[in-house]
């Protein structure tokens, strides 16, 4: 017990460079594996949360763009969605990394972009914007005619019409699918350090540490279930939070008219 508390104080923040510098070399305990893999989760949460929050706004813009009458805006949005949904995230990471690398050799300004905390975040931001944009676009298409007619009847138009009627309804309809998207965005953050982005000073994410232990112990049956445990926990938290927001969005509706969330796993993106 004493020993485990020591391990936690040594390694709990290891993934961000705080605490003991050397990773354990031999005699790996269960406590070490739990602590280090949990420490790696900091990165997964960082990437997922920031990409989700920033992607939300671009996604709304892309969805509205795809539904736009203007052919230039529509085509641009369609292509944006196709490029990011049609190619593997893995390749996108690689391409972005080497793209930033060659920019860096020209301009020193791009130095930060080649490290994961910024470069990978940008890729995830664009990627989730494309996936979410498609979800929002679908919701935009299925807004009940009555809702927009009612908005017209009240004399709303332009921005107030969008802000007060279209947008809330769109979110309400898209919410169950968006919850799934949020879950799988967090899952796909595990790809960051397995693609081009290098791990500096062994400060990696949860999968990095899980792979580290599996590599050192030749025993995948302990670190990967720990990783799965953390991710199931994270998934439950996301479902809980998103469910709260969903209830708020639907609070004006009768009980049986609320769209239900169904967990629909969609692995690799």
């Amino acid at each position: 017990m004493e020993e485990c508390l020591n391990t936690i104080s040594d390694y709990a923040l290891r993934s961000v460079g705080v605490g003991e510098r050397l990773l354990p070399r031999s005699d790996f305990t269960l406590c070490q594996q739990f602590t280090l893999i949990g420490s790696g989760m900091i990165w997964n949460i960082y990437f997922g949360l920031l990409a989700l929050l920033s992607g939300f706004f671009l996604a709304t813009a892309v969805a509205v763009g795809k539904a736009s009458q203007n052919i230039v805006i529509r085509k641009a949005s369609e292509w944006f969605i196709f490029v990011f949904r049609g190619s593997p995230l893995f390749i996108q990471f690689f391409f972005a990394y080497f793209f930033f690398l060659s920019l860096k050799s020209q301009f020193a300004f791009f130095d930060a972009f080649t490290s994961a905390w910024l470069g990978a975040l940008i890729v995830l931001f664009l990627n989730t914007s494309a996936y979410t944009g498609e979800i929002f676009y679908g919701a935009l298409q299925s807004i009940p005619k009555g809702d927009s007619e009612a908005a017209d009847a009240y004399g709303l138009s332009g921005w107030p019409r969008f802000r007060r009627v279209i947008w809330p309804t769109m979110l309400r309809l898209a919410w169950p699918a968006y919850t799934n998207e949020a879950i799988f965005l967090f899952h796909s953050t595990t790809l960051v350090f397995f693609s081009g982005f290098p791990v500096w000073g062994q400060k990696g994410d949860a999968l990095y540490y899980a792979a580290f232990f599996a590599d050192k112990t030749f025993n995948p049956f302990i670190p990967y279930p720990i990783l799965a445990f953390y991710f199931i926990l994270l998934t439950l938290v996301i479902i809980g939070i998103m469910g709260k927001i969903g209830t708020r969005l639907n609070s004006h509706l009768p009980q049986d008219a609320k769209p239900k969330f169904r967990f629909r796993p969609q692995i690799i993106r």
């Binding site: 790809l191 999968l207 599996a214 030749f218 995948p220 990967y224 990783l227 991710f231």
Partner: peptide, 16 residues
């Protein structure tokens, strides 16, 4: 197989 994150499965299965 549906419940657990994606590539963890690939890494796990190959060794297993």
């Amino acid at each position: 197989v549906r419940g657990v994150p994606d590539i963890a499965f690939f890494l796990f299965f190959v060794i297993a």
